[in-house]
Simulated assay, not measured.
Amino acid sequence: MNTIVVYYSFTNNNEQLAKLLQEKLKCEILKIETVRRRTALSIFLDVLFQRKPAIRPHEMAMERYDRFIFVAPVWAGRMASPLRTFLYEEKNFIVRYSFITLCGGGQDNQRWRLEKELTAILETPPENVTELWIKEVLESKNMDPTKFTTAYRVESKDFERFADKINAFIK
């Protein structure tokens, strides 16, 4: 099976997760990069108007892969818009896929909404959708999740908290 990890990361939290998955799976990786720099305002507008920002072209032939693992943040209950752009551009090559995110956490029905959004774009449901909540890391450090979730930058040791979920996702 030829697997690729495709990721977008605004704060580098999801980039660290993507690289961890690549290392564990010993597969290729592709970083989605936007043409224009992202800001809090552009992210807000993307969510509000369901925009698909322009992304930089890549040199990888997606038809070579039979399994995709998508990694991206979740913004207001939706996957990050640069990943959405990628999915629309490459959807003809994506059949078997999963999605994992390092996100704030705690939103009702977020997983279900992500599955619905992915299925609507790719016309086939994901094999797996997994959320790793920063909220859990903050609570374990006795930090207020309401205050620090958005600003928190994950450290490699934080992934130990999610080891069981990551291993279950990989299987």
Rank of each mutant, 00 (worst) to 15 (best):
A80D: 00
P82G: 00
L30R: 09
M60V: 15
A120Y: 05
V6N: 04
A40W: 04
P126D: 10
Q110F: 00
T85V: 03
E59G: 11
M60T: 15
R113P: 08
E90N: 07
A120F: 08
M60E: 15
A163L: 08
F49M: 14
R51S: 07
V5H: 12
E28G: 14
G106Q: 01
I121A: 12
M1H: 06
V6A: 04
E89V: 05
L45F: 10
R96A: 07
E117P: 10
F49A: 06
V95H: 09
S98V: 01
R78L: 14
R84W: 01
K91I: 01
L21Y: 09
M79D: 05
E139F: 00
R51F: 09
Y65K: 08
L83Q: 01
A18S: 08
K157W: 15
Q110A: 09
M79L: 14
T34F: 08
Q110W: 01
V47I: 15
L21K: 05
L30P: 00
L45N: 05
Y152V: 05
K91W: 03
E155Y: 00
R36G: 05
F162Q: 02
L41G: 07
K141S: 02
A54H: 13
E59M: 08
Q50D: 14
E33C: 01
M1G: 13
N109E: 12
R96F: 05
E15K: 15
Y7C: 01
R113L: 13
L45K: 09
E15H: 08
N109K: 07
F148C: 02
W75R: 06
F70Q: 07
L118F: 13
T39M: 11
P53F: 13
V5G: 11
E123D: 13
L87I: 00
R161H: 12
K141N: 08
M62W: 12
T146N: 10
R84G: 02
N14P: 08
E63R: 10
I121N: 15
Y88Q: 01
N92S: 06
K19N: 15
I69A: 04
T146K: 10
V47D: 14
Q107I: 15
K31D: 09
T149L: 03
I4S: 00
V5Q: 09
L87K: 05
K31Y: 02
V47M: 09
T3R: 13
D46H: 13
K116G: 03
K147P: 01
F148T: 06
A120G: 15
